[in-house]
């Protein structure tokens, strides 16, 4: 989906669909597997799968205590996979453009700018991790429980220091309130297919399973 507006609305709709019921979550998984490049992206960069570890633990705890851990696992897995797809396909600057398009050059720009800075901080964290790995390799260090603590602490400190740099840059570049978002979007030929599919699945998920079969008949 090239148009970030359609992608954003589709992701919101399908995430609500997954949250509402197990059937909705199964439809979401089908949407993710068939209509998005999510599976391919996940094979290229499987890091988001780590987010499923706590989900699996909580689900196991739910099942062990007699709760509905299975449903929780399916729903959360669907949400995590859709979120990882949305994160992996995003292009720099588009969040600011979408917010500017939706809410204008004041509120929209401010919200979009915060989002962009937040996303770059996430990227920075990822790069910082690979930088530390390189630094350790060059020093001949290996990761152990003794080194893990200071390194994790250091990453937090660096993230805080980078937010100071960001504040400096905002200040010297004259940021006070809002700005021109300059939204410009391009749309792919098949963008509407996953968008309408997401909306359709969301509507279906509001219906009872029994109603779906009645509708199908």
């Amino acid at each position: 989906m090239e148009d970030p507006r359609l992608r954003l609305f589709a992701v919101i709709a399908i995430s609500i669909c997954a949250f509402l019921s197990t059937v909705g979550a199964l439809m979401t998984l089908a949407w993710w597997a068939v209509l998005t490049p999510g599976p391919r992206l996940l094979r290229q960069s499987p890091a988001p799968l780590f987010a499923l570890v706590p989900v699996a633990l909580i689900s196991a705890l739910g099942i062990a205590t007699g709760g509905d851990g299975f449903s929780y696992f399916i729903r959360m897995t669907a949400i995590v996979l859709v979120a990882s797809y949305a994160y992996q396909v995003r292009r720099p600057g588009e969040f600011l453009q979408v917010c500017g398009w939706m809410m204008g050059n004041r509120t929209g720009f401010d919200l979009g700018l915060s989002g962009e800075i937040g996303l770059s901080s996430l990227e920075l964290l990822g790069r910082d991790l690979s930088r530390i790995r390189t630094a350790m390799q060059l020093k001949g260090m290996s990761l152990s429980w003794n080194t893990f603590g200071p390194i994790a602490g250091g990453m937090v400190i660096r993230l805080l220091s980078s937010s100071e740099d960001q504040a400096d840059l905002l200040y010297t570049r004259g940021y006070s309130e809002g700005g021109t978002a300059c939204p410009r979007f391009s749309r792919g030929t098949w963008d509407f297919v996953p968008f309408f599919a997401a909306i359709f699945f969301l509507i279906l998920s509001f219906l009872e399973v029994r109603d779906i079969f009645i509708l199908l008949q």
Binding site: R131, I132, T134, A135, M136, L138, K139, G140, M141, T147, P150, I151, G153, G154, I157
Partner: peptide, 15 residues
């Protein structure tokens, strides 16, 4: 062998 990267801050692993 080792490499001294152009940015010294890239080597930092200690707090």
């Amino acid at each position: 062998f080792t490499l001294s990267l152009q940015f010294p801050e890239w080597h930092i692993t200690g707090n």
